[in-house]
């Protein structure tokens, strides 16, 4: 198994610059969750110049809508949702100091550019591992927008939460790099391959 980097939020610019697409990372500490509906509300506040109910500076946002917690457990199944749906919400949060997003799947060109500008990364969690990943979440509490149900903003306390650096702060992209490495059919290159490849 490849070397693993341990990250403990809050994170600095230097932490982010040291990461390269393809790196294996274990996160221990606090994650803030958020997906479509919560992001729309945060954007409304940013547009109006009002304060957010959460402080994103130095933090990581995990794109997840967990299933209900069974009795005695902190959370139900809690794997990543698809990241690109949140593409247009990324840059305004990076401006406020957000350091990383966690989700599954590729990001658009605008997000990849913004990650370079603001020294941030997009991390890939394996999609469909909701039951397994829930075991790395030690506690969970709703910190905003409880009325949104599974789309509420939670604070997760995680231990050794496994992710892979998908898009680094230097333009590296693990999805494009790896699919090119394994493809035997260049004529069927996926639509999302592009940009700078990881070193």
């Amino acid at each position: 198994m490849a070397d693993v980097i341990n990250l403990h939020p809050p994170l600095t610019e230097e932490d982010m610059l040291s990461l390269k697409a393809g790196d294996r990372v274990l996160i221990t500490g606090t994650l803030i969750t958020g997906r479509d509906a919560a992001h729309r509300r945060l954007m409304d506040l940013i547009e109006k110049g009002e304060p957010l109910p959460i402080d994103v500076a130095g933090q990581m946002i995990y794109y997840v809508g967990p299933s209900p917690a069974p009795p005695g457990a902190p959370i139900g199944s809690a794997g990543p949702t698809t990241a690109y749906r949140m593409d247009k919400y990324v840059e305004p949060l990076l401006k406020l100091g957000l350091r990383a997003t966690i989700g599954k799947g590729f990001r658009g060109a605008t997000v990849k550019e913004a990650l370079k500008t603001y020294k941030a990364v997009h991390l890939h969690a394996i999609g469909g591992l909701g039951a397994l990943l829930s075991k790395r979440i030690k506690s969970a509490r709703i910190i905003a927008y409880e009325d949104l149900g599974p789309e509420a903003i939670y604070e997760f306390d995680v231990e050794d939460f496994p992710v892979i650096v998908a898009n680094d702060a230097h333009g590296g992209d693990v999805y494009s790099t790896n699919v090119r490495q394994f493809s035997e059919l260049p004529e069927f290159e996926p639509s999302w391959v592009g940009g700078q490849l990881a070193g």
Binding site: G65, G76, A131, P150
Partner: peptide
């Protein structure tokens, strides 16, 4: 554990 294999 009778836990959904995926949250979706």
């Amino acid at each position: 554990e009778k836990l959904p294999m995926c949250q979706d």
